[in-house]
């Protein structure tokens, strides 16, 4: 499972994903340095940042060295010159998930990381403006978490209107 791909620096667990994508499983500490090395290696674009809440699936298939946590941040890098994709799955933690922001490397991750923060409550350190992006600012909870029941909150986006 831990084939050391020539693309990834040593010490990072990798495997092959469906559709010929390379998968990397760095730790939280390795994450930023790994993305930086990919960027220097010709991955010009960070296409996507998203996350998954594996509340019910701590037993999901992962390489042996990786310790599964509840939240996983999934980053997609694209190399235009190599025509390759790399998917980086970093275990972000259980109670207070937190990973480094990629803003310093790819400014285009700004909105994507805000969306992940909004939907999952994952903190991105060194993000310039970590506010909610899709939900209203005073919203409670993070909707895409698995313990956030849909239909739990009656649809009312602001407090009851006052006299106008």
């Amino acid at each position: 499972m831990t084939s050391l791909s020539p693309l990834a620096p040593p010490g990072v667990v990798t495997s092959d994903g469906l559709g010929a994508d390379l998968l990397c499983f760095p730790t939280r500490e390795q994450y930023f340095a790994l993305v930086e090395s990919f960027k220097n290696d010709g991955f010009e674009m960070c296409v996507d940042v998203t996350a998954v809440d594996y509340l019910e699936h701590f037993d999901r298939p992962l390489p042996d060295e990786v310790v599964a946590t509840r939240f996983e941040v999934v980053t997609n890098l694209l190399s235009l010159s190599k025509k390759r994709r790399v998917r980086i799955r970093v275990q972000a933690g259980n109670e207070e998930p937190e990973v480094d922001s990629l803003f310093a490397l790819y400014p285009g991750t700004e909105a994507l990381e805000r969306e992940v923060f909004d939907m999952y409550g994952i903190i991105f350190t060194n993000h310039p403006d970590l506010t909610r992006i899709l939900m209203p600012e005073d919203w409670e909870g993070h909707p895409l978490r698995k313990d956030y029941g849909s239909g739990r909150v009656p649809i009312q986006f602001k407090e009851a209107p006052g006299p106008r």
């Binding site: 994903g17 469906l18 559709g19 296409v47 998954v52 019910e56 699936h57 999901r60 999934v74």
Partner: peptide, 23 residues
Amino acid sequence: PVGEVYSAVESPRGEIGCYIVSD
């Protein structure tokens, strides 16, 4: 089957990608 996959196509506005995790 269990797995996760990202598939991207070119939409009129750019790359539209779909990331699916199946349990």
